[in-house]
């Protein structure tokens, strides 16, 4: 909105609005800062019976380790509990899910956006229903066949399942991006002698990169953040980060190693933090992509 609109605001209104935003920022960001800071303390500081301020100063941490900061939680999680393996698995899963989703998603969404027939509409509606279904409802359907055919527990099974679960969302998002590209563009390319695939590949895709990158980010988030599928379909040694963290809560917590879980949680948040930092504009444009359409 224009800046002259701002200048008309009276002082109390402005103060109120600033303090509200400040309050929201604290609510939104403080938990992350707090947990990040606390992950370098010992458990008795982070969960302090005496005084919560111990988590800031690290009294016990100093007593135990001789320094106000300790990387024991990280050491325990990454090395002792082999969190690095889960990080590797998450990397593999996310990479392949994003690549495959985008490849087959762009093809499908392009077709949907260029077909004016009724069935394109019905396919989108079906995709919407699929998008609305909680993933866990499908997991119940995978278990028995996957057990019977020996597909359960492997990384690549999970990758394919996540690709399929991501498809409805990917299709809708890419569809709304493709809609914005004028049809004249590919039609004129085809008049010049391109096949429809060539028109798609050499004329439409180059214009679509921003949309593809944005959709890729959201596919990544869906794969990275998934808990229902990865927790149920991966064997213990193939676990990705999120189910691994959930696993820490059971046994590790009772053994007094809750700081392992805290360290793992912080480790899993860092990539997302960087993602928002570098791709903030794309994420914002992706969130509004569906909305602008109406």
């Amino acid at each position: 909105m224009s800046s002259n609109f701002v200048e008309h605001k009276s002082v109390p209104v402005r103060l109120l609005s600033y303090s509200f935003i400040l309050l929201w920022l604290v609510i939104a960001a403080f938990p992350f800062i707090w947990t990040f800071w606390g992950s370098f303390k010992v458990e008795l500081d982070f969960f302090s019976k005496e005084n919560w301020a111990n988590a800031i100063t690290g009294v016990r941490t100093f007593g135990d380790t001789g320094s106000a900061f300790t990387a024991d939680g990280y050491r325990g999680a990454w090395i002792k509990e082999e969190f690095w393996k889960s990080v590797l698995n998450t990397t593999i899963v996310c990479f392949f899910v994003v690549c495959t989703s985008l490849t087959i998603g762009t093809l499908g969404a392009y077709a949907l956006s260029r077909s004016g027939f009724r069935y394109a509409f019905w396919l989108l509606i079906i995709a919407l229903v699929f998008r609305a279904m909680p993933p866990i409802t499908l997991v119940a359907g995978y278990m028995l066949p996957f057990f019977e055919w020996g597909l359960w527990g492997h990384l690549w099974t999970t990758i394919i399942v996540l690709v399929a679960i991501n498809q409805p969302f990917t299709l809708w998002m890419l569809h709304s991006f493709f809609k914005k590209i004028p049809k004249d563009l590919d039609e004129s390319a085809m008049v010049d002698g391109c096949t429809s695939f060539q028109a798609f590949r050499y004329v439409i895709l180059p214009v679509m990169w921003p949309g593809v990158i944005t959709t890729g980010l959201f596919s990544f988030l869906l794969a990275y953040n998934d808990f229902a599928v990865t927790a149920m379909l991966l064997s213990k040694e193939n676990q990705t980060m999120v189910p691994k963290i959930a696993g820490f809560l059971g046994t590790t917590q009772t053994e007094g190693n809750v700081m392992f879980a805290v360290a793992a949680v912080v480790s899993a948040t860092v990539p997302l933090f960087l993602l928002v930092m570098f791709f903030q504009r794309q994420i914002v444009s992706g969130l509004t992509a569906g909305a602008v359409k109406g």
């Binding site: 939104a28 919560w52 988030l221 999120v242 903030q280 994420i283």
Partner: peptide
């Protein structure tokens, strides 16, 4: 906007754990 996006982007399980530890009777 950067800080506002964090609660949404963070893995739901991770986000709920972060809050869970803070509301623990020994948390802040």
């Amino acid at each position: 906007i950067f800080f506002s996006l964090l609660p949404m982007i963070v893995t739901p399980l991770v986000g709920s754990l972060i809050l869970f530890w803070m509301i623990d009777s020994r948390g802040i």
